[in-house]
Simulated assay, not measured.
Amino acid sequence: MTAAASGPVIEVAVVQSGETPADADAALDELIARFEEAAEGADLVVFPELATTPYFCGVVNDSRKSWAQPVPGPATARFADAARRLGTAVAFGLYEDAGDAQYNSAVLIDADGTVVQGTDVHGDRVPTYRKTSIPKDDLSDVDEKHYFSPGSGPVVFDALGTRFGMLICYDRSFPEYWLAARAAGAEVMLVFVSSMGFRETLFTQELQVRAMETQTWVVAPNRGGQETLDGKTVSYFGRSSVVTPRGALVVSAPAHEAGPVVRAAVDVAEVAAARRDFPLGRDRQPGVFRYLADAHEGSAHSRAVPV
């Protein structure tokens, strides 16, 4: 990692992992091996949503709830040891057991092996970002509501000389989550994805628009290729990407391919430059957000079509 005029340059490696073993130890062995490969020349290695397990939400199977683990726990311990040994930070998604509830979560581990504590919207210190919006729909044929409780909203994490925001998969289509992370000071957004189906067509364009709107770097790892679980096979569309604060696509991994690692130099100084040149933050009207909040609250208590 090198320092720029007003921020670091972070060398990022994005791992487009493929089919994950159902055996927890075997899955971690594979992930740590991928981490070791990707870490060469990188300051930060990033894995997709629910990276430590197969993506299991396409079928309702209560036995999968036993896959959840605490943070800190087995996965964070293995990654922390590797991060310390390699001198490289790592971020990944996992199924979190918080005792009173289970979450689709993501964690950031610094290069010294420390699980980075984030700050949530309430000002509390927390070890994970928990997916805010939980999908259940026929288009994607998933039921995450059966497994996960919703998180409380954006969390920001300070590491590597910058401030990271996080989103997980479905969250990426709610612009207000991006804007809230920016308001909390996020300069780099980590967007953890395990996505298949109709959303492939606009995947990179959606990330580019969100990056331009929030003037943040976007680092988005997705699964790639086929995965079979409980007799059901799906193909994750990959296209793991890095996007600049001006919305330019720096790099994108191949579609439907398991295993590629894409790399980019994330110059955090570009965030301030983009915001200076095109001052969206200055010209945003906060009254619109109050209107949206009131309208959404009103629709929840009426028979009107939800906004």
Rank of each mutant, 00 (worst) to 15 (best):
E297F: 04
R85V: 02
T2V: 12
G247K: 04
E270H: 00
E19D: 15
P260C: 13
E213W: 01
D23M: 03
N222C: 05
V209Q: 06
T201F: 10
A83W: 14
A51M: 07
A39D: 07
A293T: 06
M166E: 06
F192G: 02
A68K: 10
L50V: 15
A293P: 00
E36V: 14
Q102E: 09
N61R: 15
Q285I: 11
E213F: 01
A304Q: 12
A183V: 00
L229W: 11
T114V: 06
V126Y: 01
D171S: 01
V305H: 04
A106P: 05
V266Q: 08
R125Q: 09
E144D: 13
P260Y: 11
F79L: 13
R130C: 12
M196V: 06
S63L: 12
K232W: 00
D25C: 00
V90Q: 03
T119K: 04
S194E: 12
D137I: 06
R223F: 12
K136P: 01
S240G: 10
A269I: 06
P8F: 05
G185Y: 09
V234Y: 05
G151F: 03
E11S: 14
G259R: 01
R239W: 03
A3D: 12
A265R: 11
L167V: 03
A274K: 04
R172N: 09
G58K: 11
R284W: 10
A273Y: 04
V9A: 09
V107T: 13
T216A: 04
D25A: 15
T88P: 07
T52H: 07
F164Y: 12
D124E: 14
A91Y: 01
A91K: 02
H146D: 09
M212A: 14
G161T: 05
G93Q: 05
G225H: 11
G259I: 12
G231H: 04
E37V: 11
G165Q: 05
T228I: 08
V59A: 09
A3P: 02
Q117I: 00
E96W: 05
A180E: 14
I32T: 15
F192N: 07
F192H: 15
S149G: 11
V266C: 09
T228D: 04
G281R: 12
R290A: 08
G298I: 04
A265F: 02
L249Y: 05
G287C: 00
L94C: 07
G151T: 12
D97A: 12
V234N: 07
D25N: 14
R34A: 14
A26K: 13
V126E: 03
A295S: 08
V209C: 02
V242T: 11
L202N: 09
